[in-house]
């Protein structure tokens, strides 16, 4: 106990030191060092700070921190289509991921159960799954836009199609590899198929299914940023692209940071669910 807590403490100290070193190097690398050209005041007005004050175009950690603080103070403001608070943009992204992901759960888990319990279906559907699985979810986008004719729903469809495969394959694997002896216990107790599915196969396969769900949420969060860059309008992916067009590298960095944090939180939530259904043997 003593050693684990001290290990944790030491690891924490190293983490803080690494962060401090990174911020320090970042700060030093983006200091104003470039020579300031002499120019007429009219011309200087047209030029950016890089030219007039020798300031680096890449924001330093202090600029990012200040801007982040502004965003955190007003996360939900809405000044029209191209100027919404980061909270609103993240909420749009999370809502899209949540919808597409839940639809995928509703399809993948029952379907995976069927395929896992039926060797016939498993063999029959295998070629389709093998072909569909490696398709980049964004490749579906034009097809989705053409058939659905709604960019927001198309984005949800892309999330659905990218998060379905890990869940489906893990459910099939988990269901098919439930220990024979547990199934035999249910058989000797004359437990019917439906009750057996819920009382033996589901709990036995749950850790594997949840692992698939955890992989899926990670992929869904990766894909939403790219999808929103394509469909535009709202969401954190659109925010990144919009700020790049505004040449606001500070906002881009902030968005990158927040995408990472939200992704981590989503993963942690699924990790907690996985722990809840995992049983020690």
């Amino acid at each position: 106990m003593m050693t684990t807590s001290s290990l944790r403490l030491r690891a924490g100290l190293v983490s803080i030191a690494l962060l401090a070193a990174f911020l320090g190097i970042w700060h030093l690398a983006t200091r104003s060092t470039a020579p300031v050209a002499t120019m007429s005041p009219e011309y200087a007005k047209l030029m950016g700070l890089t030219a007039t004050q020798g300031k680096s175009a890449m924001p330093g950690p202090l600029d990012v921190g200040a801007k982040l603080w502004q965003h955190l103070k007003r996360p939900f403001y809405d000044n029209g289509p191209n100027d919404k608070g980061l909270g609103i943009q993240l909420a749009y992204s999370i809502a899209r991921v949540g919808t597409g992901y839940l639809l995928a759960v509703l399809v993948a888990i029952p379907l995976g159960f069927l395929i896992g319990m039926s060797p016939l279906l498993s063999k029959a559907l295998d070629p389709f799954i093998q072909v569909l699985k490696p398709i980049s979810p964004l490749a579906w986008m034009p097809l989705a836009l053409y058939t659905i004719k709604d960019s927001s729903i198309s984005a949800i469809f892309v999330i659905f199609i990218c998060s379905i495969w890990p869940m489906l394959l893990n459910t099939v694997f988990g269901v098919a590899s439930v220990r024979k002896e547990w199934v035999n216990v249910a058989r000797t107790l004359e437990v019917g198929t439906v009750r057996r599915a819920f009382t033996v196969i589901l709990p036995a396969a749950a850790p594997t299914i949840l692992t698939g769900m955890r992989i899926s949420i990670g992929i869904a969060w990766l894909v939403i940023v790219a999808a929103e860059m394509l469909v535009g309008g709202t969401g954190v992916g659109y925010f990144v692209w919009n700020e790049w067009n505004n040449l606001s590298i500070t906002n881009v960095i902030i968005a990158i940071l927040l995408i990472g944090i939200v992704g981590m939180l989503l993963d942690q939530i699924l990790a907690r669910f996985t722990r809840m259904v995992t049983f020690p043997e």
Binding site: W182, V185, R187, T188, L189, E190, A204, V277
Partner: peptide
């Protein structure tokens, strides 16, 4: 088929771990 009249004690005990 199986029956509740015939109980089986498995070699590997086969308890449901959850």
């Amino acid at each position: 088929g199986t029956s509740l009249d015939r109980a089986v004690i498995f070699q590997s005990h086969a308890l449901l771990p959850w």
